[in-house]
Nucleic acid binder design. Sequence first.
DNA 1: CAGACTGGGGAAATCGCTTTCCTGGAGGTC
DNA 2: GACCTCCAGGAAAGCGATTTCCCCAGTCTG
Lengths: 343, 343
Amino acid sequence: MVTLEDVARQAGVSLATASRVLNGSTRQVGASMRARVERAATDLGYRTNVAAQTLARGASNVIGIVVHDLTDPYFAAIADGAMRVAAGHGQLVMVATTHRDPEQEIAYVATLNAQRVRAVLLAGSRVADPGVTARLREELDRYKESGGRVACVGQDLLGADTVAPDNREGAAALARSLAELGHTRFAVLAGPPDLLTAADRCAGFLEELAALGLPEPEVVHGAFDRDGGYQAATRTGEATCVFAVNDVMAVGALAAYRERGVRVPDEVSVAGFDDIVTLRDHVPALTTVRLPLAGMGARALELALSGERTPTVERVPGTVVLRDSVRRLPGAPRTTTDEVEAG
Amino acid sequence: MVTLEDVARQAGVSLATASRVLNGSTRQVGASMRARVERAATDLGYRTNVAAQTLARGASNVIGIVVHDLTDPYFAAIADGAMRVAAGHGQLVMVATTHRDPEQEIAYVATLNAQRVRAVLLAGSRVADPGVTARLREELDRYKESGGRVACVGQDLLGADTVAPDNREGAAALARSLAELGHTRFAVLAGPPDLLTAADRCAGFLEELAALGLPEPEVVHGAFDRDGGYQAATRTGEATCVFAVNDVMAVGALAAYRERGVRVPDEVSVAGFDDIVTLRDHVPALTTVRLPLAGMGARALELALSGERTPTVERVPGTVVLRDSVRRLPGAPRTTTDEVEAG
DNA sequence: CAGACTGGGGAAATCGCTTTCCTGGAGGTC
DNA sequence: GACCTCCAGGAAAGCGATTTCCCCAGTCTG
């Protein structure tokens, strides 16, 4: 294994000079020395030992991203956005997937701290358990004390830079839009009760329905994924419109209805939340609340990397997008002003 | 920042003992000392400095995964499988996305080498450019010389452990199945000519058609993604059956046909390749060649981590799965033995 | 032309941990 | 009881970079 010392010897210069040439420094190095060092480095096939560099510098060029599940396009989009920003800053990315285990999340923060990563991005919903959140905060605080930066996509519960989708208001806006289409009997496929993203969306939807004077909808809990939506959809009753608290659940619900021969949107309207890009070719096209996922991931990492001292919280509004999976009920007045896509 | 020395001092033991207690060692440490060290570590909130550890040990506990695009479910599935194996081995994962730029791929291998990662997993098709491949090999060789392990999902071109999907034979099997359904006039949405995965699938399909004595199909090149499939589909002519060389292209093609009012499978049959899980709810259900993506990623990393000296190459066969996006032409004999799914 | 500056080069301390080698005492054997 | 073997614990030498000083030569300035 070729070390910097080998390069320096081969080039006939000191270790210090070789370091300055190869790994960046404020100090100038003369052209001839520089050339000799570079020559020696390529001849020998030198590769910086980043561990040594990190140790000496006291800071790495790695950032950590913690997501629940990479195969969920929601997280893939967020991670992708963040990774582009990371690449732009010359940072490498360590990705950890928790598969929705909060203990794993805490453990990974500890591990990323041990790695002395420059910043940690936590993507994904917090859970309602205060004990877990407290322990996570504790671990994050320890990390921040040693100079780490933390950013978060989701609820602002961690005292860190946060990009917070406005789940409540997004769901409320969706409720208004669906009500304007004439729907009055709703069901909510609400996901797990202790998952805050799910709970917020559900609550925003319910509150708005109440504000509109509409009857309380049926609420069916279940898993936050495709199969959860599928299962929950088999247990809905008389609703004319079903709101699944995220798109992949909505897709599961659509699959369930299709299998049972329930036509969407003729017999039941279905809406989701997130506007997952890879679902744009789904049939019927899914009504949803659009969130700029990649942008959120990117923005969160920018906040973390900005070096701002006090945590910033940015709210991100969702946009209601009406598509084929919902229908206007006969007799409903035509007053909708939401974005409606062609096709 | 709390160091091991702080812990040792607080516990009143030597650095060596503290190290043996906290970071694992073959050496035994007495119970009372052990307890004192552990106590001191938690009191002080000690976190190992992994950079120092890596430097001292000469080996890290990080593995690198290089993929083209994380938002492509194909790569997400492979990465997920690999990440589960990594977690099982107590390894962290650095993920790099190249966005299909071969230069980026080479650069990332160099960077991961600098990080002294334990193993590198290269997922994704090689390109036909021998110059690029040679430079990549060179970089990989340098990495392997310094003790790194390399595994690869895709073509066996890198002299490393490889899990190679049998693209040619899979496409050939698909061609047979489609021919048995009575199709004779085909089109192939072939992707980029220089992408080996695309080229192999296309070639396997063409060869089998020729072997069956069927007329040569129309071949339309384009991008290897959804939009590439969409574009290519607008340029197909009289075929009764279209083979897109991967699923996301097939989805793009289906979208194009839908927009033009061309009914699938009544007017044209469409087949893809990969069997992307998140497409299981697509309508119409996509005929494809199933590849065990997560398993392939997992297996590749296992090979890399196994420590076997000579590179192993494992071929992975694809399974033809006939679904609603293709139809049997009138008069075709019923001889198909492929897997056909309900639903 | 002397004295003060400046800027490029090098020696060596340092980062935090692992691990080899050494040491002293406990336990076993004849 | 003398001699060996074990074993737990500690001192110290790295691991491969960065960076602070220090020095020397060349350049400016008055």
